[in-house]
Simulated scan of single mutants.
Amino acid sequence: MSSIRVAAVQAEPVWFDLAATTEKTITLIAQAAAGGARLVAFPETWLPGYPGFIWGQSALEQLPLVALYRSASPTVDGPEIAAIRAAAAAHEISVVLGFSERDHGSLYMAQAIIGADGELLLHRRKLKPTHVERTLFGESDGSGLAVVDSPLGRLGALNCWEHMQPLVKFAMYAQHEQIHVAGWPALTSPGTSLLPQLSGGACLTLSRAYALEGSVFVLVPNQLFPRDPAMADATPPELCALVYGPDGSIVSEPIDPDVEGIAYADLDLSAVSVAKTFADPVGHYSRPDVFRLTVDRTPRPVVRLEGPATEPPPAEVPEEIASA
């Protein structure tokens, strides 16, 4: 099988500016396609940028920024996502996009898998926002735990600490995923950089573990955050955009962790089969007689409205009856 060129974006969004970040997204899609990529991946909540303020401010202090952030978050059927889908079709490239999804009064940490024809192949939401993220974002049901059978291979995506949840990962492995996008936030934003569990090194460890456990290629896009020049030597970036192979090795071209760019890799999906000859977690290396996992992927709407939305209009009375 011929190789598939993929791209993991490393860039800074135009913070909380939806129109400008959408325009930048379209530019990066064109750039990745010009570089020969057939798939390009963006970080968690790339649109309109990760809300790092939730980690360093009280709830009351956040209110003005929360209002701004909500207004800058797109809807899945809005013009910004439509423009990105059109760009994917124009450049014949698949896109995995992380965005803060606004759905009426709530926000969700969403991901979209868009085909090279612009079709929305998967729209999913993060199952459990991490720690203080739950003050801003809602939870999802299991309907988004899906792997897409695309022309590039079996493609899936998760956000951030979903990669720390063993059962979530196993649900994805069980669908024989071949290419995975690990969406992470801006990990040098205020607050997150002080938590070892949210360090760039920890997130790369989890991403590499996913590649090894699932015998899957893992794309790790990176959202840059401006760093204080005075702290540059003390807090060097640990996370950079890269691609792991199913054996856990880095298969992408090197990229400077301090600058915007795109990490490219050429994937040979036969490497997935080779890796699984050693350990297939949902095949010969499993023990279904000892362990079983049930995953409920039923959509769970909060309200199910039944029946007509309005009363039916009264039937017209025939003229001969009305005049009798």
Results as ranks from 00 to 15, higher is better:
195 L>R: 01
227 R>E: 11
154 R>F: 08
172 M>L: 12
162 E>D: 14
240 C>R: 06
219 L>C: 15
197 Q>D: 15
214 G>L: 07
215 S>D: 10
201 G>K: 06
209 A>W: 04
172 M>D: 14
174 A>F: 11
186 A>C: 13
205 T>H: 10
186 A>E: 10
244 Y>G: 04
195 L>E: 15
245 G>Q: 01
186 A>L: 14
225 F>W: 12
243 V>N: 07
222 N>G: 10
169 K>S: 15
148 V>N: 00
161 W>K: 11
207 S>D: 00
236 P>Y: 00
174 A>Y: 09
222 N>K: 02
189 S>G: 13
220 V>Q: 03
196 P>M: 05
176 H>R: 14
231 M>K: 11
223 Q>R: 08
152 L>P: 01
231 M>H: 14
211 A>P: 09
199 S>D: 14
189 S>D: 05
236 P>K: 08
162 E>M: 12
162 E>K: 05
242 L>P: 05
171 A>D: 13
243 V>H: 06
236 P>G: 07
172 M>R: 08
179 I>F: 03
212 L>D: 12
207 S>Y: 00
180 H>T: 09
163 H>A: 12
158 L>W: 08
181 V>E: 00
169 K>L: 13
186 A>R: 07
244 Y>C: 03
193 S>Y: 03
236 P>S: 08
200 G>N: 09
226 P>C: 03
149 D>H: 14
205 T>P: 04
218 V>F: 11
168 V>L: 14
198 L>Y: 07
226 P>E: 09
202 A>W: 02
226 P>W: 02
152 L>I: 06
174 A>C: 14
170 F>N: 09
199 S>C: 01
154 R>Y: 01
181 V>P: 04
207 S>A: 11
186 A>P: 08
200 G>M: 03
200 G>E: 10
222 N>R: 02
207 S>C: 01
244 Y>A: 05
215 S>K: 02
165 Q>W: 15
225 F>M: 05
194 L>R: 00
226 P>R: 14
166 P>D: 11
245 G>D: 01
181 V>L: 13
240 C>N: 10
171 A>P: 04
181 V>G: 02
234 A>W: 13
172 M>H: 14
227 R>H: 10
150 S>G: 01
177 E>C: 15
148 V>C: 13
239 L>D: 00
192 T>W: 04
235 T>Y: 14
228 D>T: 07
239 L>N: 04
244 Y>T: 02
236 P>C: 06
194 L>N: 11
203 C>D: 08
152 L>A: 05
227 R>K: 15
224 L>E: 10
165 Q>K: 15
235 T>G: 08
234 A>S: 12
245 G>T: 01
159 N>L: 03
182 A>V: 05
242 L>N: 09
202 A>Y: 00
